[in-house]
Each structure stands twice: as structure tokens, then as C-alpha cells.
Computed example of a mutant assay.
Amino acid sequence: MSVQTEAAAPVAPVMQTHPVRPGRLTQLWADMKRHKVSYLFLTPFLLLFTFFTIIPVFMSIGLSFTYYNILEPPRFIGLSNYKLLFVDDDIFLKAIGTTLKFAFITGPVGYIMAFLLAWLISQIPIKYRFFYTLCFYTPSITSAVAMSVVWLYLFAGDRKGLLNYYAMKLGIINEPYLFLQNIHSIVPVIIIVSLWMSMGVSFLAFLAGLQNVPKDLYEAGAIDGVRYRWQELIYITVPAVKPQLLFGAVLQVVTSLTVFDVSIQLVGLPSPLYAGHTILTHLYDYAFIKFEMGYASAIAVVLFAMMIGLNRLIFKWLGRD
């Protein structure tokens, strides 16, 4: 008995298809539709940030390539403003040196001081924390004008200045020392006053982060052999508050590079032999006294680039993927 089999029909090869990835804009639009309520809440901030931060930044970059004195329309002059800044403007080069000197001293010192003070306050009983927090935070919310009155009395260059009075009374000096007129003491005085006023938002961020470190981490550390407070600080506390450390570092960079009010109130504009002249002071001079907005925009772009560069370094050291 023979069995007849039909010839099998040829089977078409199966093509392996890969899902097509949507583009970034398509994916963003899908995310916006999926989370539309969240994006609606973000809309007011995004609009304000766009109109008052992003657009002015690009406008400043554009004006930096022009000559613009407010009275006349901007006139394109290419890189002339930048050439003048770095080749012919000796005062600006001096302002860069003063600003960097100020930043590299007040930045790390103010940052470490804010963190250590916040850590010390977090160790005391809760009922006393508000008092100490208020004492350290108050100088940062006090206007520079009000603070300068106190510091001008302290560093006054006559016999009635507080430091000169007690130094002469103790026989340390014979004649009053001109703290705010001597070019060698102007920058140290500005640094001291700025450090006194540096316990600002970063200090509060450190304090909030330290108070929210889980107690379980310290208990686990004690089981693993952590015995001393400095060991807790290095191995437990610092890694736990790394986001707050990053936030505080960014704020400290911005604050240290934009010193202005303290310098103006203490030593005036211009300061003696431009000893207290900073980048922001130079920008203010050209923008609102000489009304050379194109040149002032070039100064602002240089300052902005310095901030971006230092912030990138900070994100590299403290940032997370």
C-alpha cells in the first residue's frame, strides 16, 4: 500500500523586524501627554525661566559682539569687545585676578565652614537648633548696606574705629591703620565680611540634609565598627548628604564669583587703585555708569563662562549619573 504525499509548499523566510525607536521629540511629546498634569504645574516656572534667564543670556551673547550705548541701535563690531577686554583693559585683568583670589579663598572656606556649622548644630538638642540657626543665618539675609555700617565702624581708619581704638589702647600700633584705604588690606577685609555673610541657602540645605539622614545608617555603622563622630561624618554623613553638598557647591561658586555689594559699600567705586575691583563691579561700571552695554555684555559672557566651567568641575567631583 503506497502513501501519496503532497509536495510541501515553499515557506517564505521570516523577516526579523526590530521595533522602530521614536525620535526624541516624539518621545518627549508622548511623555508630556502622559504626564500632562505635572507639566502644567511646571509651566509657570518654565515660562519665567525662559523669559527672564534663557532669553537674556542669548541676548547678552548677541550684544557682546556689538557696540551699544542705549541711545543708538546696536552696531556689529565682531570680536572687538573681547579683544579690548583681554588685551587693552588692564583694569579688567586686575578684576579677574581679584575675583579669582576672592573665589578660591571664600569659596572653599565658606563651603566647609557652612557644612561644619550645620553639622555641629545638627548634633545639639532640637530645642536649641532654631536659636543657633537664626544666629548664623541672619547676616546672609541682612542687606549689605546695613551690614556695611557695622563693618565700616569696625574697620574705620581713624582713632574712633573699633579695631584701631583697641589696638592703640593696647599699644599694638601707634597710629590708626587705614584698613579700607590700604591696597594690601582691602581684599582681606572684603573676604572677612563675605565669609561672615556666607551662611545662606547652602547652610540651610546642609542643615536640612543632615537632619534627614536615616538613623538606621548610624546604627548599622556602629555594628560595623564605627566608634567616633569623625568616622560617622566621613563614612556615613557625607555620602548621605551628597545631593545637598552638590547644591551648596554650585551656590557657593555663584556667590563667590559675583561679589559686588560688599565691595561697593566698603571701599566704593572705584576702590583705591582698583584694589577691590571685581568682575561684577567692572560690569556694573560699564553697564550703568558708562552705559556701554555691548562691552558690559562681553564682561557678562566671560563671567558666565567662568561659572559654567567651575560648575562643570563641581558636577564632575560631586555629581551623580
Rank of each mutant, 00 (worst) to 15 (best):
S2W: 07
T5N: 12
E6I: 15
E6S: 11
A9Q: 14
V11S: 02
V14F: 11
T17E: 13
T17V: 14
H18Y: 12
L25F: 14
M32R: 05
T43G: 09
L47V: 15
F49Y: 10
T53Y: 11
I54F: 09
P56W: 02
F58D: 02
M59F: 13
L63C: 02
S64C: 11
F65I: 07
N69A: 07
N69L: 00
I77L: 02
I77F: 01
G78K: 03
S80Y: 00
F92R: 13
L93A: 10
T98E: 12
T99I: 05
F104A: 03
F104W: 09
I105S: 07
I105P: 07
M113F: 12
F115L: 15
L116Y: 13
L117E: 03
L117V: 15
A118C: 04
Q123K: 15
R129A: 07
F130Y: 14
C135H: 09
C135Y: 08
S143Y: 00
V145L: 01
V145H: 02
A146W: 12
M147G: 13
L154D: 10
F155K: 03
G157I: 08
G161F: 10
L162P: 08
G171K: 02
G171Y: 00
L178Y: 12
L180C: 01
N182G: 05
H184L: 14
S185T: 15
V189A: 01
S198A: 12
A205E: 00
F206A: 12
L207M: 01
A208P: 00
L210Q: 03
V213N: 02
A220N: 08
A222L: 11
V226R: 04
R229K: 15
R229M: 11
I236F: 10
T237A: 09
K242T: 13
Q244F: 12
F247P: 06
A249Q: 02
V250E: 05
V250I: 14
V250R: 01
Q252F: 01
V254K: 09
S256G: 09
L257I: 13
T258R: 15
T258Y: 00
I264G: 09
I264K: 12
Q265V: 10
V267E: 07
G268W: 11
G268R: 03
L269C: 00
L269V: 12
P270A: 02
S271Y: 06
P272M: 04
G276P: 01
L280V: 09
H282C: 06
A287Q: 06
I289V: 13
I289R: 09
F291C: 06
S297Y: 03
V301E: 06
M307P: 01
G309W: 01
R312W: 11
I314Q: 02
L318C: 04
L318M: 00
D321Y: 10
